[in-house]
Amino acid sequence: MFPENLSAVAHLTAGAVGGLGASLIRVPTEVVKQRMQTGQFRTAPDAVRLIVAKEGFRGLFAGYGSFLLRDLPFDAIQFCIYEQLRIGYKLMAKRELKDPENALIGAFAGAITGAITTPLDVLKTRLMIQGQTKQYSGIVSCAKTGIEPRVLWIGIGGSIFFGVLEKTKSVLAERSSRKAALAEKDE
């Protein structure tokens, strides 16, 4: 449906739509898995039964919004990167790609996308495992708990790093001009 020059848009859209459909199965599965990993339940059937009993059916969809916030960009970006890399590589190779090449491109697309979306994954996990404690009232509440200290430390670190960088550049430039001035005197 999309012209060839908009294939990236088509791939982004396809990835997001596919992720949206899959979320209806992946979210309850992820909620059960996360809670079992934190020791809240021993078996998956117990987890499902007790979550529904204590939190209602909606409990299986805890963190649904944060899941979509993480997975829709993940699915869209990963699928787009994968397809665009395949198109480029195929044009360069002037042939159909072999299975190992597709697998390598897929690994690269997944790794890049995982790095990009990690903060969203942390939000999703925190919201899914909170259970009835309701430590966070939503995505924004959850993000604030991690963002404020991170912004503070990254800000302080950036101040020190860039301050030292600029001072070092200044000192080196001054030394260089002194050496040049001395060299001119000696001539």
Rank of each mutant, 00 (worst) to 15 (best):
K144T: 14
L72I: 14
A109H: 04
T117K: 03
I129F: 01
Q34A: 06
P73L: 09
G131Y: 02
S66T: 11
S141L: 12
V122E: 05
I77D: 07
Y64E: 10
T145W: 07
K94N: 10
K33A: 15
V122R: 09
A115I: 10
F41H: 00
D75T: 15
G138I: 04
I51N: 03
V17I: 13
G146R: 08
R42E: 14
R58W: 11
L69Y: 14
A14W: 01
L104I: 14
A16S: 04
A47R: 02
G110P: 04
G106I: 08
A103D: 12
A143E: 11
E101H: 08
G56A: 05
K54M: 07
F79Q: 13
L24E: 04
L120R: 05
G19H: 06
Q130H: 03
Q34T: 01
L20S: 00
S141I: 05
L85E: 07
G138L: 05
Q34C: 06
T38I: 13
M36D: 03
I51Q: 00
V27S: 03
K33L: 14
L20F: 07
L152Q: 10
A62H: 11
I129Q: 10
G15L: 04
M128L: 09
L85P: 04
L60E: 03
Q132P: 10
E148S: 15
P149D: 01
V31F: 00
P45C: 02
K94D: 15
V151E: 11
G114M: 11
T29D: 08
G21F: 07
L50M: 06
L68D: 07
G155R: 06
G18S: 12
L123S: 06
F67W: 15
G56E: 04
F74M: 07
I87C: 09
G63T: 04
Q135W: 15
G39Q: 01
I105A: 01
G114V: 08
I105M: 00
R42V: 13
T118Y: 09
